[in-house]
Design a protein around this nucleic acid. Structure first.
Lengths: 328, 328
DNA sequence: ATGAAAGCGCTAACAT
DNA sequence: ATGTTAGCGCTTTCAT
């Protein structure tokens, strides 16, 4: 329990003024004579004074910190999203507290337990865990991205249904008859399910069979690959795949090649997300691009409104775009 | 300046005990009778009490927060690295404050100004800005990753020289005669320069010409692509490329194809980093893999040692590995 | 234009 | 086993 080396009081002593005056100089508030200002600045420099941010936070009851609760930052979509969120928040004077849940409910709870204790001024969440009870009766400003948390919390999401239609329609236009879809396990309360709904409606309307392989986000790459091998074994007739994200699309194409299928000749593939990093590393992939930057801007705006006390519980849905690659 | 709804004092009043007792129950410290414990817990539940973390931080003079200052999280290498760091820090009870500098020195300074004011217990830095004066005479525990900050700050880095040798040797073994390298601008004080040194030494030893194209990390993708077109225009004889990171390798291959070169028939390519996301999206790339997880573990260990007051200014160098793809 | 004093919510000596 | 009291470092009424 060592004390801070040099504090406001020390500066006051050296400058020969009171703590109040130093605080005023620090915050540029109230009436100050130039002579006093200079004296205080000089003392601050001499002592290498640094104001203690925590003390200020305690008094002001705000931290200018926003917590980001997402599965992981090591992913093209979430990486870009968190980078955009950080950028938008920075512009408004907020810093970011990372809360990678790794899709572990206990970790998500642990983060929330802390963050809700005055650690942050607000929360932006996009983790995929179910039944986190702490979101009920929360008094902190919260915005969610692509996740239904509770009815009071506004959601920012892409138009997943339209995306599902675009993807499926592209494969149908390509002449595919046996289109398989991958998605999260069905019970996840995510707007993501709209992608599946769109796929199923179009397939039904066209009288085509539908199969959805469920791949949970947090499975290991090896596990996912195993599922995709199973996909080709159980459905050798598959000629089109609508993957619910681009990394799955990439894995499916790798497995397809191992099974002797050429893309796009024997198999068409459409992904989802269209993040920058995927566009750079896998530009040939045809995919549905989410407006990540706009989603970040909207989320931060909604959060700021809540922090400012404006009651905007409206949710936001943003348009997606089909990116034509060579895989479909 | 609203006050916190319910505080320790309120719990004390309801439970009919003193603040101290409530604090003791909260922290499970000192002698407590079971009856008191129960009373206090009951009062806490009734009031939905949440301890104010900031007040505790002020008293304890520690925040259990570690700042991560890196260029961006939207990148396979930094994304995975920050995810690993977060995971290691979480295990030790620390949370992470994000400091994406976007390679903007002003932003890096702004972060440091705040973080050094008691906001964090330590810092792990890997941003690429030069001459940030705040790192001089810093009193906070700091560890750097792949960056030379100042002589007092320990550095965790991969064996970049060995990596440069592996990459260049692979291309030489493939029979390449005109190998081009890409790297950061030369003046950057980064262990990364060792990759270049290795390339140049091997080329010199083999009596081969050497050309390094300088591509700054924070250029836009469009700018990078322009440089790579220039590379092929100025050196149509190129038959091997050693890129200093995998995303550049990917861009180079895209440009090569546009210029009618087949990889690996006409052009061999070796990248650097070998992050998970690159392995998933671009598995065919031959690359030098950095031990990201080990680097994170080592960095956190060094930081913890400093926080604990152990004087370990030793730097750490970790081995790299050649990953055989099909591009070289 | 400046200062004294109270208080943000919590913890820990030091009593009892 | 529990309470009293004095801070942690800062900001802000309220005085002068």
């Amino acid at each position: 329990m060592k004390k801070q080396a040099v504090k406001l009081e020390d500066v006051a002593a050296v400058a020969g003024v009171s703590k109040t005056t130093v605080s005023r100089v620090l915050n540029n508030r109230g009436y100050l004579s130039q002579a006093t200002i200079d004296k205080v600045h000089k003392a601050m420099q001499e002592l290498h004074y640094r104001p203690n941010i925590i003390a200020r936070q305690l008094y002001q009851q705000r931290t200018n910190l926003v917590g980001l609760v997402f599965p992981t930052v090591d992913n093209p979509f979430f990486g870009q999203l968190e980078a955009c969120l950080d950028h938008e928040l920075y512009k408004r004077g907020y810093r970011v507290l990372m809360g990678n849940s790794q899709n572990n409910p206990d970790r998500e709870r642990a983060y929330l337990r802390q963050l809700l204790n005055g650690q942050v001024d607000g929360l932006i969440v996009g983790a995929h865990n179910e039944g986190i009870e702490q979101y009920r009766n929360i008094q902190l400003p919260v915005v969610s991205i692509e996740r239904l948390v509770s009815k009071d919390i506004p959601v920012v999401a892409a138009d997943n249904y339209a995306g599902g239609v675009l993807a499926t329609q592209q494969l149908l236009d390509d002449g595919c008859q046996h289109i398989i879809h991958t998605n999260y396990p069905h019970d996840l309360a995510s707007p993501n399910m709209e992608r599946r709904r769109a796929y199923e409606e179009l397939m039904r309307r066209h009288g085509l069979p539908m199969y959805t392989y469920e791949v949970s986000f947090d499975s290991s790459t090896a596990e996912k690959i195993k599922i995709f091998y199973r996909l080709f074994d159980e459905h050798p007739e598959v000629d089109g795949v609508f993957a619910d994200n681009d990394t799955n699309a990439s894995l499916i194409m790798q497995v397809a090649r191992k099974r002797g299928r050429r893309v796009p000749e024997d198999l068409k593939v459409v992904g989802f997300d269209g993040a920058n990093m995927t566009r750079t590393l896998l530009p040939e992939l045809t995919t549905i691009q989410q407006p990540i930057q706009q989603m970040a801007t909207a989320a931060v705006q909604l959060l700021q409104d809540q922090i400012d006390g404006k009651k905007t519980t409206n949710s936001v849905q943003l348009p997606v775009k089909l990116i034509h690659g060579t895989t479909a």
